[in-house]
Design a protein around this nucleic acid. Structure first.
Length: 210
DNA sequence: ACATTAAGTGATT
DNA sequence: AATCACTTAATGT
């Protein structure tokens, strides 16, 4: 666990901070599809992802889901950060996309370190910055782009985070993530296959054009 | 062999 | 893009 942490973060953080994290953080593991944080949960610590990928999603009153973005090794969750600042409840759900390991930092520390460690401040700001980009992108695709571009982006992101161009899912699950109907996904996937961007099999999509 | 689940298709709004 | 109704294909028991 220590090596995993050092491998991913030793270039980002200064020595004292690395040590402090190692002494304070709690190591956690989740299995694929475990719910890490659910909507309306209070947030007491923030994650540093060591391995695996997490799917961040929103849910409406009727239980319809919509994927926002993935977070991966070396990432933290901007939503969690913002919740820490305002001590509010989580507005998102975090589901383990793959098996995940992470370090949990108590939220008091996260604030304290902002003034104490420059590298930490940098990391947090960078994280916000990066997520801001993703949000705008997500907004663009939802507002202006057609479903097929959204779908392709989804597939690419997914292939990226699991580090494999063979994606195991059903059209139904994709439809739920993208908040549309299965029929639409099936048709769009068919189209993407025709364009040579993907190859379809049952329960399996091969993303060719990464 | 039969039931269940995933995926494909045409028509309609 | 969503929904319906129906077909076809793959898989499980």
């Amino acid at each position: 666990m220590r090596e995993k942490f050092r491998n991913n973060y030793s270039y980002i953080f200064e020595k004292e901070l690395l040590q402090e994290i190692e002494s304070l953080a709690v190591y956690k593991e989740f299995k694929e599809n475990d719910i890490i944080i659910d909507i309306d949960h209070y947030i007491v610590s923030i994650p540093l992802v060591l391995d695996g990928a997490i799917k961040i999603m929103r849910q409406d009153e009727d239980g319809n889901e919509l994927i926002l973005y993935f977070i991966e090794r070396g990432d933290t969750c901007a939503m969690t950060l913002s919740c820490c600042m305002g001590q509010s409840k989580s507005k998102i759900r975090a589901v383990a996309e793959t098996d995940v390991s992470m370090l949990m930092i108590p939220k008091q520390k996260m604030k304290e370190w902002l003034t104490k460690y420059g590298t930490w401040q940098e990391y947090i700001l960078q994280s916000y910055h990066g997520r801001m980009h993703e949000f705008i992108e997500a907004l663009d695709t939802i507002a202006f782009l057609n479903m097929d571009m959204r779908l392709l982006k989804y597939l690419r992101d997914k292939a990226m985070v699991i580090g494999n161009d063979e994606i195991y899912t059903t059209h139904k699950e994709i439809a739920e993530d993208l908040h549309t109907s299965r029929v639409v996904i099936s048709r769009l996937l068919k189209g993407l296959e025709k364009d040579g961007k993907i190859k379809l099999n049952r329960n399996n999509i091969h993303v060719i054009d990464l």
